[in-house]
Design a protein around this nucleic acid. Structure first.
Length: 572
RNA sequence: CGGGGCGUGGCUCAGCCCGGUAGAGCGCUCGGUUCGGGACCGAGAGGUCGGAAGUUCAAAUCUUCUCGCCCCGACCA
């Protein structure tokens, strides 16, 4: 492709609205343009990359027996009512104003509606159905360029099985396919156990790319292999346990203690002997929750523990009404109204605890949670911290930020139950289809690739998804000798099956062309200039390493092909 | 949704506090020189200062409302 005939609006300066490297570089390299908050146009160069990622995904999905569909993005609302997900998605789902239609944020319902019409027998399964499609989510705050946007491309796959073992097999196939997909896209990634959230189901894992731009935290230990999203990560932290002495609970004045830290400081109480009390509403119902000391409540775990769709902390006015005190003086004893109580397992059956007296400025000490509180259940509710022993091998956990590039779920029968997608087994008995759901964020792969592969000058594409594998930079294209050779290389390389971006601009200074080439980041740059041509050579530069190979004119095609092959090798 | 910031030519920004002829650099067009790391000289084109209302003799500048974008938080398969 000749640059003079192609549309690549590069930017010399960093756009003010872009913060993270991938966003800045995608704008500067002329890959994308913003249309509205979280809405991006893909320009030719960016779309080439997107299509290459999609091709890799297709190849790997087809390789595990997947069949590609193309489902509508515009969906009748009542299909979504069947599973209760209009409510579950809430404001995240776009609703049309002039029809009872929604824009699909994912496609479980549509797949299930097809399955219930046509999949009747256990003999019809397994099936793997997938599509690569535009999804719409009304993100409250789009950010980081294409990493969190309101319209994006997702590869979503669904497995249909007639047994739990079948689901396991389908799930494992997807995990293997996903590993190949990310590896082939030149990404370094890791897999963590994850919460299944609003998707429902029994198990899920996320494919993560470590990045400061990430919105998820993951806890892991390389040695033991434990890895989990912080939303579900647990640790082998010591339980608080019971003290031998167990005197009656006793009220004492704490006029200046509003926080756990105040209590620790002013009354020399060990932090784990403080029972922090929180009031949360889960789907509208209030709960009093006890945590040890300064342990952080994990809202995702709370949702799972209570089976709730939505949880939120109580407001100050609500606190006073329920407990009789403001936050900071809340506890299990002397509550103003009856409220369900739950606690973190770390303080299960603990005594000798200090907690609020439900009267501003007072706390109780010597609280025995068994004796003095009315706790209906203990759950793992705390957020793990870096350095705590991991639950597998007891080795210290690391906590890192990461971007989610894929998510696989064992859905089970959540959707087939509610939508009555049933099949007959070999005994003639009716069962709901056992489903799995598997997503990949296509734009996120591109953004993460750039996050991982860039330097101060620009992008460093892996050949597998580079928009072009080769760039030819013709310095002073207007000179006859340069033009003659550059044209020749362009033809030779193209005929050799390589994708070539040919900078054939005239009257553009060498420095300008070099800077553009580094920004665009094709893996191999063939620099055609009189300096080396007069000796019968050209310079071939490898973008990633900066290595320059002075190459005889006649060897250019062969050397380029070899370099692209070498640079494109991946471990599978 | 809460907090903060920003909207001035295609891009990056100055001007606003203290009202009085709309600016710079880059980019773009034309002519010439230059040509291996974002060249130089000369001549040009290009802006309802996000929008609306108000105050004023006079508004980019002050007031109110509104729209948009970004950041932090809340939220997020």
């Amino acid at each position: 492709m000749r640059l003079t005939q192609y549309f690549i609006p590069t930017l010399k300066e960093i756009p003010a609205d872009a913060v993270i490297p991938s966003h800045q570089l995608m704008l500067r390299a002329g890959m994308i343009r913003l249309l509205g908050a979280g809405i991006y146009s893909f320009l030719p160069l960016g779309y080439r990359v997107l299509k290459k990622v999609e091709t890799i995904i297709r190849e790997e999905m087809d390789a595990i027996g997947g069949m590609e569909f193309h489902l509508p993005a515009l969906n009748p609302k009542d299909v979504w009512e069947e599973t209760g997900r209009v409510e579950a998605f809430g404001d995240t789902m776009f609703h049309l104003k002039n029809r009872e239609l929604v824009l699909a944020p994912t496609h479980e319902e549509i797949i299930t509606s097809i399955a219930r019409s046509f999949v009747r027998s256990y003999r019809d399964m397994p099936q793997i159905w997938y599509q690569i499609q535009t999804k719409f989510r009304n993100e409250p705050r789009p950010k980081s360029g294409v990493i969190r946007s309101r319209q994006f491309t997702m590869k979503d796959a669904y497995s249909l099985d007639n047994s739990p073992e079948g689901l396991d097999a389908s799930y494992d196939k997807h995990v293997e396919a996903y590993k190949r997909i990310y590896s082939r896209c030149g990404l370094k990634f890791f897999i963590v156990g994850a919460s299944s959230g609003a998707m429902g189901g029994s198990g899920s894992q996320e494919f993560m790319v470590e990045s400061d731009a990430g919105e998820d935290l993951c806890a892991f230990n390389m040695e033991t292999g434990y890895a989990a999203n912080i939303e579900i990560a647990s640790s082998k932290i010591e339980p608080v346990g019971r003290l031998d002495e167990n005197p009656d609970a006793e009220k004492f004045a704490t006029p200046d203690a509003r926080t756990i830290d105040d209590l620790i400081e002013q009354f020399s109480i060990p932090d784990e002997r403080c029972a922090k009390s929180l009031v949360y509403f889960a789907d509208g119902e209030p709960y009093l929750i006890f945590m040890a000391g300064n342990d952080q409540l994990n809202e995702e775990k709370l949702k799972t523990a209570l089976g709730a769709i939505e949880v939120r902390p109580a407001h100050d006015e609500e606190l006073a009404g329920i407990t009789g005190a403001d936050s900071g003086s809340i506890g299990p004893i002397n509550l103003k109204s009856k409220i369900k109580q739950i606690a973190d397992v770390r303080i299960q059956n603990a005594n000798g605890m200090v907690s609020g007296a439900n009267e501003n400025g007072f706390h109780y000490k010597n609280i025995d949670l068994d004796r003095d509180a009315d706790i209906s259940a203990y759950h793992d509710l705390r957020t793990v911290l870096e350095g705590e022993p991991d639950p597998v091998g007891g080795k210290p956990l690391s906590v890192k930020k990461a971007i989610e590039v894929g998510h696989v779920f064992k859905l089970g029968t959540k959707y087939s139950d509610s939508m009555k997608a049933l099949f007959l087994d070999d005994k003639g008995e009716e069962h709901p289809i056992i489903m799995g759901s598997y997503g990949i964020g296509v734009e996120r792969i591109v953004a993460c690739h750039i996050e991982q592969r860039h330097d101060k000058d620009g992008i460093m594409w892996h050949p597998s998804i580079a928009p072009f594998q080769i760039q030819i930079t013709a310095l002073k294209y207007e000179s006859d000798v340069t033009r003659e050779h550059a044209d020749r290389f362009y033809n030779e390389l193209t005929e050799a099956g390589l994708e070539v971006l040919f900078d054939d601009r005239e009257g553009v200074s060498p420095g300008f062309k070099f800077k553009d080439a580094d920004l665009l980041g094709m893996p191999v740059n063939v620099i055609v200039g009189e300096k080396h041509l007069k000796d019968g050579n050209v310079e071939i530069k490898i973008r990633e390493t900066g290595e320059r190979k002075i190459t005889p004119i006649d060897d250019v095609a062969a050397v380029c092909k070899q370099l692209v092959d070498e640079l494109g090798k991946v471990e599978l």
